[in-house]
């Protein structure tokens, strides 16, 4: 039975990664048509991608959104994780559960709801509206990562620091923060990747300053621009994978 499972896992693994491998393979293919057999090797789609102004501005939009989202989500996730792991208070378990509620709704519902809020209040759409949308789905992940980090940290260190006369703020910066650092970096990388790759909320909330996924979506309608999308996709996939691997490794590091 064990052999059957290993064999199955192998097939699963191949099928899991096959589409990703295809994207990368075709991004180096010297043909506008996405068809087998593969033609000669080329880097021209990558050159084309680097010279595309719309793409570059979409990239900078995505960077601004993802960096801001990662910092804000990690900050608020960290504070929330400290609250629920370091204190006993009324409503603690309710708070823990309710922080995950945004993940229990189809994104299209939250997307149209946020769009309605911004349009009906006259705030309009901007990079800030996408950030707000992304904070909603990234904060639960940040909280999840940091809760497990703080759970593994004994409060004794903090107590010792305070017993030795350090004020709370100094204790936070000199004891809590360094100990939680792997979790914080892990959360930053994870939320950055989620925000950078997120499409549905960005689609509804970005209006005329598209993010990279929204830009790719708009290019998919034109068959001749598909190779350019694939080149871009390959870069996004590789970079995302590296960030996630680092994030997960930091996460599994023992406190």
């Amino acid at each position: 039975m064990r052999k059957v499972r290993l064999f199955y896992a192998m097939i699963y693994f191949i099928v899991l990664y096959l589409p990703i491998v295809l994207i990368i393979a075709f991004s180096f293919n010297d043909s506008v048509y996405i068809a087998f057999p593969l033609k000669a090797f080329t880097l021209r789609w990558y050159h084309a991608a680097m010279e595309n102004q719309q793409l570059l501005s979409a990239f900078s939009n995505s960077m601004i959104i993802a960096v801001t989202t990662a910092i804000l989500a990690t900050f608020s996730g960290m504070l929330a994780a400290m609250a629920t792991t370091r204190y006993r208070f009324r409503g603690r378990s309710l708070a823990t559960v309710s922080l995950f509620v945004p993940l229990a709704l189809p994104t299209v519902v939250t997307g149209v709801a946020l769009l309605s809020i911004f349009m009906m209040t006259g705030l309009g759409l901007s990079l800030a509206t996408v950030i707000l949308g992304h904070l909603m789905i990234c904060t639960p992940f940040s909280y999840g990562v940091l809760v497990s980090r703080f759970d593994g940290l004994s409060p004794d260190f903090e107590r010792a620091s305070m017993d030795l006369g350090e004020p709370p703020l100094a204790t936070f910066f000199r004891v809590t923060l360094p100990l939680a650092m792997p979790g914080i970096v892990s959360s930053l990388l994870l939320t950055f990747t989620i925000s950078f790759d997120e499409f549905i909320l960005a689609f509804f909330l970005s209006s005329n300053s598209p993010t990279l996924p929204v830009f790719m979506w708009s290019q998919m309608r034109f068959p001749d621009r598909l190779p350019l999308v694939l080149a871009l996709a390959s870069v996004v996939i590789i970079v995302s994978s590296i960030l996630i691997v680092i994030s997960q490794r930091l996460r599994s590091k023992q406190a």
Binding site: L72, A73, F75, S76, G77, L79, A80, M82, A83, T84, R86, Y87, F89, R92, A95, S98, L99, V101, P102, L105, V109, T110, V112, A113, L114, S116, I117, M120, L132, L135, M136, T139, P140, Y143
Partner: peptide, 23 residues
Amino acid sequence: PYFLLTPAMLTTVATLAICMVVL
């Protein structure tokens, strides 16, 4: 703890509640 929870609650639960009301 309530102060610490405020930012996370604002961007998740509170925003979600407003979303539902608007819908």
